[in-house]
Amino acid sequence: MEGLTAFQRDLLYVIADADHPSGQDIKDEIERYYSTEINHGRLYPNLDTLVNKELVEKGELDRRTNYYAITDEGNTAIQERREWESQYVDL
């Protein structure tokens, strides 16, 4: 998770919990969490960053719709983050 913003980390968590969500699915979920509208200019560049860091893979559902899926590296990053957090927060 090194080098990720909190927003990118939240996107990663949303993707990890879903089965090949589309960008719109991710947008809907993250808007519920943030209780505000997230514009495409914020969402898609951040998704591309996760793809470029190989934490998420991007594929095509159809000609207009992409899907996103967590990679093994993404799962490892989440696990490492949770282990780090557990040092400071006792759940």
Score class of each variant (00 low, 15 high):
residue 1 M to E: 02
residue 2 E to R: 15
residue 5 T to M: 06
residue 6 A to H: 12
residue 6 A to N: 12
residue 7 F to G: 03
residue 7 F to W: 01
residue 8 Q to E: 14
residue 9 R to D: 07
residue 9 R to L: 15
residue 10 D to L: 15
residue 10 D to C: 05
residue 10 D to E: 14
residue 10 D to T: 05
residue 11 L to K: 11
residue 12 L to M: 09
residue 13 Y to Q: 08
residue 14 V to L: 06
residue 15 I to C: 03
residue 16 A to S: 13
residue 16 A to M: 07
residue 17 D to E: 12
residue 17 D to S: 12
residue 18 A to N: 10
residue 19 D to F: 13
residue 21 P to I: 10
residue 22 S to C: 03
residue 23 G to R: 06
residue 23 G to W: 13
residue 23 G to L: 12
residue 25 D to R: 11
residue 26 I to C: 10
residue 26 I to F: 08
residue 26 I to G: 07
residue 27 K to E: 12
residue 28 D to N: 14
residue 29 E to M: 12
residue 29 E to S: 14
residue 29 E to F: 13
residue 29 E to R: 15
residue 30 I to K: 07
residue 32 R to C: 02
residue 32 R to Q: 06
residue 33 Y to R: 14
residue 33 Y to S: 09
residue 34 Y to C: 02
residue 34 Y to F: 13
residue 41 G to Y: 02
residue 42 R to S: 09
residue 42 R to T: 13
residue 42 R to L: 15
residue 44 Y to W: 13
residue 44 Y to I: 09
residue 46 N to W: 05
residue 46 N to A: 10
residue 47 L to M: 08
residue 47 L to T: 03
residue 49 T to Q: 04
residue 49 T to S: 08
residue 49 T to F: 05
residue 50 L to E: 00
residue 52 N to F: 07
residue 52 N to A: 04
residue 53 K to W: 05
residue 53 K to C: 05
residue 54 E to A: 12
residue 55 L to N: 07
residue 56 V to T: 02
residue 57 E to Y: 03
residue 58 K to A: 07
residue 58 K to Y: 01
residue 59 G to M: 03
residue 60 E to G: 03
residue 60 E to K: 13
residue 60 E to L: 08
residue 61 L to W: 06
residue 62 D to R: 12
residue 63 R to V: 00
residue 64 R to V: 00
residue 67 Y to A: 02
residue 69 A to F: 00
residue 70 I to Q: 04
residue 71 T to A: 06
residue 71 T to H: 07
residue 72 D to C: 02
residue 74 G to D: 09
residue 74 G to S: 08
residue 75 N to D: 11
residue 76 T to W: 09
residue 76 T to D: 10
residue 76 T to G: 00
residue 76 T to M: 12
residue 77 A to N: 04
residue 78 I to F: 04
residue 78 I to L: 15
residue 81 R to K: 12
residue 81 R to P: 01
residue 83 E to D: 11
residue 83 E to N: 13
residue 84 W to N: 06
residue 84 W to A: 14
residue 84 W to P: 00
residue 85 E to Q: 13
residue 85 E to R: 15
residue 85 E to H: 09
residue 88 Y to H: 06
residue 90 D to N: 10
residue 90 D to G: 06
residue 91 L to T: 03
